[in-house]
Amino acid sequence: MALLDQLWFQNTLVLIGYALVASLLSSATKGERWQAASSRLKRDYVGIAAFVVIVLFVFIGSMEMIRLPSNEGRRTLLDLVTTGIPQEKEYAAPMATHAFSVANPRPLNGRHLLGTDTLGRDTLVQTLRATRTALIIGGLTSIIYIPIGVLLGIMAGYYKRWVDDLIQYLYSTIASVPEILMLVAILMVLGKGLGTMSIALGITGWVGLARLIRGETLRQTEKPYITAAKAMGQSDWKIITRHLLPNVMHLVVIKFVLGFSGLVLTEAVLSYLGVGAPIGTASWGGMIDASRSELSRDPVVWWNLTSAATALFLLVLSLNIFGDSLRRAFDPRQT
């Protein structure tokens, strides 16, 4: 695992991840369908606002993803930016000057906009740091489930017969196990971690996409242009990549955005159940979980829950709104 410990290798992996997502998005932004959709999107100001929020989150999360050389443990771009924020030893309320304890409050090293957590870490920084976890779960899972879902969906819809039967059997089997149970079972065996969580979410996630793509492919293959392409002697591979793929890509992009929001929410639940983000990794789910004991204190420590829940809510809401805008832009008949 020496390679994985190298900074340049980790940073390259991050870049490859971004490149994969970017290529997915760019492949969908071609052709007439996208032009019609983008002109509608430009007039959808709520959708644009949501997109801006998403970009902001991606920017913050990326800062936490890029690692810098350091002598002591993990150091990221976000650490560099936030070096000025002092470390405390215990809870501190938002903007308080003294520590959060009733008996004998000590003066703090500095003020904290959103307070600190039980280890004295700045809540705002922790909340921003957790964006990375959400992005990794959403991004990595998408990189896993989208190729599988698209490939199997198109194959089932295009080749029909036994290929279709086999793929349908495969996804019926996975779909027959309730999703949360499946995730828990896989994660219990594979262990905690962002990578294992993405794998587990990928295994359950492709089913919905494959179903969607299969249906759309079946509809497309009924159309004359596919028959025409076949009559012209085009190879199956060409028909799939040249004709079918561009005609289902918009569904993939919509599913990617809406699926992303679902993944962020599921991450929070899994982290809460104790099979999600490993201890020491900042995650909104973990922060919400930790806040249960904070709420039973007197006076209540509310700021960690509020910060994590608000950040999570904002990202998921923006993704949902933007995904909805995309869907309306691509298919204006639906309301």
Binding site: L265, A268, V269, I288, L305, A309, L312, F313, L317
Partner: peptide
């Protein structure tokens, strides 16, 4: 409403 996690 859809964007709020169950725990919250």
């Amino acid at each position: 409403l859809m964007s709020v996690p169950l725990m919250v």
